[in-house]
């Protein structure tokens, strides 16, 4: 067995004139959880669909579980499982029937299939609902069923496209537990996409940050945060936009956030703060609010693109803020 479960080289996918994936390369090791982190429209789903043989790449090469996705799609399909971003269950049928049909299509049958269905429905805690039609399930239950279904044929590589999108925080944490258990129990390779930073950070061994169809950084969460520096100071200033970005030799980077606050990258916040106060006083600017914390993946994205990754309340920014402050 090769060392890598996924090898992608210079992958390009165009829809008409629009280039959704613009020449990406990366490798995922066996047994690793690898996350694609990026905002909506970054090209995550497109990449997943190419890797799972549902879309033909425009150019480039992708090898999944040892087989080329273009030359041997059938061999790839045998070895992968996928939870699509959008629901893909048969809503008219029951949870059990959905599992059963999937198993049969993948060539399982008889008592082996029955045992596996029972085991997996118990694993995702849906066994007691096995005879209920899927259309009566909550979003979280449907997601769990899809996860169970994707594991039925014991794939070598599992693709999870935004596995917790639109779910409440409790359900999300619950699904993370399943994902961790899957990796530990089956040593499965998992390719995960998400636009939630906390999800990437919680689950992934390595993260690739993707934006506008390009990978702009790759590494462990720790490695990525080192790109930013040690600390980030957030200031709320009573100053016109053009004066907000303060300049001094101890300020390594400065970005203005969507909410008007300023994020300053510094080596050591404790030492930088007094100097900052002086600087601000010199310029006659008033500080309304100050906080600082270690960089998050959001800061990394901000650092790399000048934009923030979070949207539509993936997590409440203020809540995250408060949590960070309390931890210090």
């Amino acid at each position: 067995m090769a060392e890598h479960a996924i090898v992608v080289e210079n992958l390009v996918k165009r829809y008409g004139d629009f280039e959704a994936v613009r020449g990406i390369s990366f490798r995922v090791k066996r047994g690793e959880i690898f996350a694609f982190l990026g905002p909506n429209g970054a090209g995550k789903t497109t990449t997943v669909h190419v890797l799972t043989t549902l879309l033909k790449p425009t150019s480039g090469k992708a090898v999944v579980a040892g087989h080329d996705v273009v030359d041997e799609p059938m061999e790839v399909r045998k070895r992968i499982g996928i939870v699509f971003q959008d629901p893909s269950l048969d809503r008219e049928l029951t949870a059990y029937e959905n599992m059963y049909i999937h198993g049969r299509i993948y060539g399982l049958k008889g008592s082996e299939l029955k045992e596996k269905i029972e085991h997996l429905l118990k694993f995702v805690e849906l066994w007691e609902f096995k005879d209920k039609p899927v259309k009566t399930f909550s979003g979280g239950m449907q997601r769990r069923l899809e996860i169970a279904r994707s594991l039925l044929h014991e794939p070598e590589v599992l693709f999870l496209d935004e596995p917790t999108i639109g779910l409440d925080p409790q359900t999300r944490a619950h699904i993370w537990d399943y994902i961790r258990a899957m990796k530990e129990e089956h040593n499965m390779t998992i390719f995960l996409t998400t636009h939630y930073m906390d999800e990437a950070e919680q689950l992934a061994d390595r993260i690739a940050i993707i934006d506008h169809g390009k990978i702009i950084a790759e590494g462990t969460a720790e490695e990525l945060k080192k790109l930013v520096g040690n600390d980030v100071v957030y200031l709320k200033l009573d100053a016109p936009e053009e004066l907000k970005c303060l300049r001094a030799e101890f300020i390594r980077g400065c970005k203005i956030l969507a909410d008007g606050r300023v994020a300053l990258e510094v080596e050591n916040a404790a030492e930088a703060l007094p100097r900052l106060f002086e600087l601000v006083a010199e310029k006659g600017i008033k500080i309304l609010e100050v906080t600082y914390h270690r960089p998050t993946l959001n800061d990394v994205f901000l650092h790399l693109t000048g934009r923030e990754i979070r949207d539509e309340g993936a997590e409440n920014p203020m809540a995250a803020f408060v949590r960070m402050r309390m931890r210090r």
Binding site: I82, P87, Y106
Partner: peptide, 18 residues
């Protein structure tokens, strides 16, 4: 529309047969 088609397309089964 409900996504089940993708589930069939990604399966390692003969599409003609499906």
């Amino acid at each position: 529309q409900f996504g089940f088609l993708k589930e069939v397309l990604v399966a390692p089964a003969s599409r003609k047969e499906s």
